[in-house]
Amino acid sequence: HNLTITQGKLFFHYNPKLCLSEIHKMEEVSGTKGRQERNDIALKTNGDQASCENELLKFSYIRTSFDKILLRWEPYWPPDFRDLLGFMLFYKEAPYQNVTEFDGQDACGSNSWTVVDIDPPLRSNDPKSQNHPGWLMRGLKPWTQYAIFVKTLVTFSDERRTYGAKSDIIYVQTDATNPSVPLDPISVSNSSSQIILKWKPPSDPNGNITHYLVFWERQAEDSELFELDYCLKGLKLPSRTWSPPFESEDSQKHNQSEYEDSAGECCSCPKTDSQILKELEESSFRKTFEDYLHNVVFVPRKTSSGTGAEDPRPSRKRRSLGDVGNVTVAVPTVAAFPNTSSTSVPTSPEEHRPFEKVVNKESLVISGLRHFTGYRIELQACNQDTPEERCSVAAYVSARTMPEAKADDIVGPVTHEIFENNVVHLMWQEPKEPNGLIVLYEVSYRRYGDEELHLCVSRKHFALERGCRLRGLSPGNYSVRIRATSLAGNGSWTEPTYFYVTDYLDVPSNIA
């Protein structure tokens, strides 16, 4: 807008934040220059609390790290170098490059900038070799853009010569660093050979998330399962459950009422301010606690030095998902009996873990797994792929695949051998790939016309006998059925096997 004052003059007093240069501009645009008398524009009460600059400061050096910015700028000295009290560095987070010096300023003089007072450097006698002032900004957020400017702080001049310097606002972004852990990993099994893994992005990506790394490792069953005799009275049979499938998407929606109208769909109840505040506090606490764990609990591995020492970490090797089922080394339970199943799973520490690289999504279907087997899954978020990966501390989750139908069934015939004193040795093959492992066998036998009897055969007993022995049988026709019990439950009964026990007292003698 054009402003013209045809008559009258300007009068400025007691404006401590208004620089004289701005008042002189007002004289020019209003056409009143030359009308004012000496005392109409006070030299001592206008701009006496402001830094009124008329020179431009330029930054000469900028260096960044993930949490620091090192700045240096060209030296500046007023005509009387004693008038320079120091520099004021202003900075704040700036997602967009549209910041002005006066953003967030209120009537009390406060604003949204963080201000650092910096002492002037030592003055050199040689004007050509003056030290460049600077400042190291610490405690910054990774991968965050900051708006920065600097200006001088000078003393009051009796001659009211307006001098000083100020830089333009520059924008500097800190470097990326390792992201925080992925949030809320959930693993479920939808079949006997697959596990579905879902997660949420890290709360602090500290860069642009480029991919996720998912490692999985087959877990050995508890050692007590191999040692305890679950045929003993009072000892509860062990059981394991597989990871249940995901709930429906509708039930997972946030901010939804727990109660549904019987007449149909209901609208979600909005969260109160107290609920939102509580969630923010919980989120802040979780982030602080995660940072504490990362800094205190997890110790970084030592990389190899120039002395030739090897990095103890196993090298990563990509495998196809079809090879995942046989990740671990199978060892027989008892070496003397080769027909026992290889369900003991000690994992070799030198073995390469299978892994998958996930790009542009937060889910993965891990296939080719062994049925009813526990897996430990390790999830890392990465925001750099080359020249070397920059990934987060791992988040861990466990899951067990679903049982395989008929995996616990005894394959092959049940054979028998009759000894003296009416002892019958029953023999059968253990299931080759049971659900988890076989903890015991149930032997059901009966003599024709009598009630059915049951015998429990422990895992250890089966390994020693290759089956079991029935003792003290009365003469007669017998039928026997056997079924295995694994961590997933009972298998199917075998087809009945028949044998006849004679009275050993009636056996004919070869003595003449």
Score class of each variant (00 low, 15 high):
residue 320 S to A: 12
residue 274 S to P: 11
residue 222 D to M: 06
residue 322 G to H: 07
residue 489 G to C: 02
residue 217 E to Q: 15
residue 312 P to G: 14
residue 463 A to F: 12
residue 337 F to L: 11
residue 355 F to H: 12
residue 296 V to D: 11
residue 440 L to Q: 14
residue 444 S to P: 01
residue 391 C to T: 02
residue 487 L to A: 05
residue 498 Y to M: 11
residue 426 L to S: 02
residue 374 G to P: 09
residue 460 K to L: 08
residue 261 D to M: 13
residue 268 S to C: 15
residue 262 S to T: 09
residue 372 F to V: 01
residue 287 K to N: 10
residue 234 G to S: 11
residue 472 G to Y: 10
residue 490 N to V: 09
residue 504 Y to M: 05
residue 383 N to A: 09
residue 500 Y to H: 13
residue 431 P to T: 02
residue 456 C to N: 01
residue 237 L to W: 11
residue 342 S to K: 03
residue 376 R to H: 13
residue 211 H to E: 02
residue 209 I to Y: 01
residue 390 R to Y: 05
residue 433 E to V: 15
residue 408 D to P: 00
residue 243 S to M: 13
residue 268 S to L: 11
residue 225 L to V: 09
residue 503 D to F: 03
residue 491 G to F: 02
residue 402 M to I: 07
residue 456 C to Q: 02
residue 336 A to C: 13
residue 461 H to Q: 12
residue 456 C to E: 03
residue 356 E to H: 13
residue 378 E to T: 13
residue 400 R to P: 01
residue 443 V to H: 01
residue 273 D to I: 14
residue 224 E to M: 14
residue 479 S to E: 10
residue 442 E to K: 10
residue 303 T to S: 10
residue 217 E to C: 14
residue 374 G to V: 05
residue 395 A to V: 08
residue 256 Q to S: 06
residue 431 P to A: 10
residue 327 V to E: 11
residue 425 H to I: 15
residue 418 I to V: 10
residue 437 L to H: 03
residue 443 V to S: 00
residue 226 F to V: 08
residue 443 V to P: 01
residue 499 F to A: 02
residue 390 R to L: 11
residue 303 T to V: 06
residue 445 Y to A: 15
residue 284 S to Y: 02
residue 211 H to A: 06
residue 388 E to D: 15
residue 336 A to N: 07
residue 232 L to D: 14
residue 225 L to E: 07
residue 272 T to G: 07
residue 237 L to R: 13
residue 279 E to A: 06
residue 274 S to Y: 04
residue 505 L to D: 10
residue 388 E to S: 05
residue 472 G to A: 14
residue 425 H to A: 14
residue 231 C to L: 02
residue 260 E to G: 03
residue 482 I to F: 03
residue 444 S to L: 05
residue 254 H to T: 09
residue 425 H to S: 12
residue 465 E to W: 12
residue 477 N to E: 05
residue 340 T to K: 13
residue 392 S to D: 02
residue 371 H to G: 10
residue 439 V to T: 11
residue 326 N to H: 14
residue 281 E to M: 04
residue 289 F to M: 08
residue 207 G to W: 03
residue 369 L to W: 01
residue 451 E to S: 14
residue 396 Y to Q: 07
residue 337 F to M: 15
residue 462 F to P: 01
residue 399 A to M: 13
residue 417 E to R: 13
residue 373 T to M: 07
residue 274 S to L: 07
residue 439 V to I: 08
residue 322 G to M: 14
residue 310 E to H: 12
residue 413 P to K: 12
residue 370 R to K: 14
residue 400 R to V: 09
residue 483 R to V: 02
residue 206 N to M: 11
residue 278 K to S: 14
residue 437 L to E: 07
residue 248 S to L: 11
residue 467 G to Q: 03
residue 434 P to S: 09
residue 278 K to G: 06
residue 385 D to I: 13
residue 452 E to S: 03
residue 360 N to C: 15
residue 476 G to R: 00
residue 256 Q to V: 12
residue 220 A to N: 09
residue 336 A to R: 04
residue 280 L to A: 15
residue 437 L to D: 13
residue 208 N to W: 11
residue 355 F to M: 11
residue 397 V to L: 14
residue 372 F to A: 10
residue 247 E to C: 08
residue 450 D to S: 14
residue 476 G to S: 01
residue 405 A to F: 11
residue 425 H to G: 07
residue 460 K to S: 12
residue 256 Q to M: 05
residue 429 Q to E: 15
residue 224 E to W: 07
residue 432 K to Y: 08
residue 442 E to R: 09
residue 450 D to Q: 13
residue 378 E to M: 06
residue 262 S to A: 09
residue 375 Y to G: 00
residue 246 F to R: 05
residue 235 L to K: 06
residue 425 H to L: 11
residue 244 P to C: 10
residue 222 D to E: 04
residue 447 R to V: 05
residue 485 T to S: 10
residue 239 S to N: 05
residue 220 A to I: 09
residue 481 R to D: 00
residue 291 D to E: 14
residue 436 G to Y: 01
residue 291 D to T: 13
residue 355 F to Q: 07
residue 283 S to H: 10
residue 474 S to I: 11
residue 361 K to A: 10
residue 340 T to E: 14
residue 269 C to I: 12
residue 306 G to V: 12
residue 399 A to G: 11
residue 329 V to R: 09
residue 343 T to C: 05
residue 300 P to L: 04
residue 387 P to A: 07
residue 311 D to F: 15
residue 241 T to Q: 11
residue 387 P to M: 15
residue 500 Y to V: 13
residue 227 E to T: 07
residue 244 P to D: 14
residue 241 T to A: 12
residue 321 L to K: 13
residue 509 S to L: 12
residue 259 Y to V: 09
residue 208 N to V: 11
residue 314 P to L: 07
residue 436 G to S: 02
residue 313 R to P: 15
residue 394 A to Q: 10
residue 451 E to F: 10
residue 247 E to V: 12
residue 242 W to E: 09
residue 233 K to P: 09
residue 431 P to R: 01
residue 326 N to T: 07
residue 314 P to V: 07
residue 346 P to T: 14
residue 344 S to N: 07
residue 345 V to G: 05
residue 208 N to E: 06
residue 219 Q to H: 03
residue 241 T to C: 13
residue 364 L to S: 13
residue 240 R to A: 02
residue 384 Q to M: 11
residue 208 N to H: 05
residue 350 E to Q: 12
residue 420 E to V: 06
residue 455 L to T: 10
residue 478 Y to K: 01
residue 296 V to G: 12
residue 277 L to S: 02
residue 268 S to N: 14
residue 509 S to V: 11
residue 451 E to L: 14
residue 297 V to I: 12
residue 377 I to A: 05
residue 501 V to M: 06
residue 492 S to A: 14
residue 345 V to Y: 12
residue 466 R to A: 07
residue 460 K to T: 08
residue 269 C to V: 08
residue 306 G to M: 14
residue 490 N to K: 04
residue 264 G to C: 02
residue 211 H to G: 08
residue 504 Y to W: 10
residue 276 I to C: 03
residue 388 E to F: 05
residue 212 Y to A: 04
residue 369 L to V: 09
residue 502 T to S: 06
residue 315 S to P: 10
residue 443 V to E: 00
residue 323 D to T: 14
residue 494 T to E: 00
residue 287 K to Y: 12
residue 224 E to Q: 12
residue 308 G to D: 10
residue 228 L to W: 15
residue 252 Q to Y: 05
residue 438 I to R: 01
residue 245 P to Y: 12
residue 421 N to E: 15
residue 402 M to A: 08
residue 249 E to A: 14
residue 470 L to W: 02
residue 484 A to Q: 02
residue 292 Y to E: 06
residue 394 A to M: 11
residue 373 T to Q: 15
residue 394 A to C: 10
residue 309 A to K: 11
residue 505 L to C: 07
residue 480 V to Y: 06
residue 372 F to G: 05
residue 282 E to W: 15
residue 334 V to T: 09
residue 372 F to R: 03
residue 224 E to H: 13
residue 390 R to M: 04
residue 269 C to S: 06
residue 457 V to W: 03
residue 259 Y to A: 09
residue 295 N to R: 11
residue 425 H to W: 12
residue 500 Y to G: 07
residue 399 A to W: 04
residue 383 N to E: 02
residue 433 E to L: 03
residue 309 A to I: 10
residue 423 V to M: 06
residue 339 N to A: 09
residue 367 S to V: 11
residue 285 F to E: 13
residue 396 Y to H: 11
residue 250 D to P: 14
residue 422 N to I: 02
residue 256 Q to G: 00
residue 383 N to S: 04
residue 276 I to L: 06
residue 271 K to M: 05
residue 439 V to A: 11
residue 466 R to C: 14
residue 403 P to Y: 10
residue 385 D to A: 10
residue 388 E to M: 11
residue 393 V to E: 15
residue 221 E to D: 05
residue 334 V to N: 08
residue 218 R to L: 12
residue 492 S to H: 14
residue 395 A to M: 11
residue 487 L to E: 04
residue 448 Y to I: 14
residue 225 L to H: 04
residue 397 V to M: 13
residue 325 G to M: 14
residue 275 Q to N: 08
residue 250 D to W: 10
residue 389 E to W: 15
residue 239 S to M: 06
residue 455 L to M: 15
residue 492 S to P: 06
residue 320 S to Y: 14
residue 445 Y to P: 01
residue 292 Y to L: 06
residue 318 R to Q: 06
residue 396 Y to K: 14
residue 329 V to F: 05
residue 482 I to E: 00
residue 335 A to T: 11
residue 501 V to C: 11
residue 290 E to M: 11
residue 215 F to G: 13
residue 347 T to L: 13
residue 309 A to T: 05
residue 289 F to Y: 05
residue 424 V to I: 04
residue 275 Q to K: 08
residue 488 A to F: 07
residue 229 D to C: 07
residue 433 E to F: 15
residue 316 R to T: 06
residue 436 G to V: 15
residue 415 T to M: 14
residue 355 F to S: 10
residue 505 L to Y: 15
residue 354 P to M: 12
residue 320 S to W: 05
residue 410 I to G: 02
residue 255 N to P: 15
residue 480 V to L: 06
residue 401 T to Q: 01
residue 498 Y to H: 12
residue 321 L to H: 09
